[in-house]
Simulated scan of single mutants.
Amino acid sequence: MNALSPGFTDTDLLPERDRAVAAGMSPFGRIGAPRDVADVAVFLASDEARWVTGENIQAGGGVA
């Protein structure tokens, strides 16, 4: 089983006051779009990830 750990993502759950700080923490200079996280989820659900096992995939745009 694998896990997907999204970082700061542009949803209603991320308060407006935190968005600029969160974007500044990423080397990309932005917060993630829902599509950024969804693409990783689709990969993990695909046959392409058949050999990925027991991993926690960080989808946070470089924010640790």
Rank of each mutant, 00 (worst) to 15 (best):
G61E: 03
A20H: 11
T9A: 05
T9C: 04
V63D: 03
G60H: 09
V37A: 04
G29H: 06
A64G: 11
V63L: 06
D47H: 12
N56I: 14
P15L: 01
L4Y: 04
E16A: 15
R17S: 15
R19W: 00
A3N: 01
S5G: 14
I31K: 05
D10W: 05
E48N: 13
Q58V: 15
E48T: 09
A49G: 02
D36W: 11
G60W: 07
R19E: 02
G32K: 01
S46Q: 10
G7K: 07
G62D: 01
G60Q: 09
D12Y: 10
V37E: 06
A49C: 00
V52S: 05
A22F: 00
R19I: 15
P27K: 11
R30P: 01
R30D: 11
P34D: 06
T11V: 09
A38V: 09
E16C: 05
T11G: 06
N56R: 14
T11N: 08
V63W: 04
A59L: 03
R19M: 02
V42Y: 15
S26W: 04
P34R: 07
Q58P: 02
P34G: 03
V52Q: 09
I57M: 03
I57Q: 02
L4G: 02
V52Y: 09
A22P: 06
S26R: 10
M25F: 02
R30H: 04
A38M: 04
D36F: 10
S26V: 01
A41R: 07
V63N: 06
R19T: 12
T11R: 08
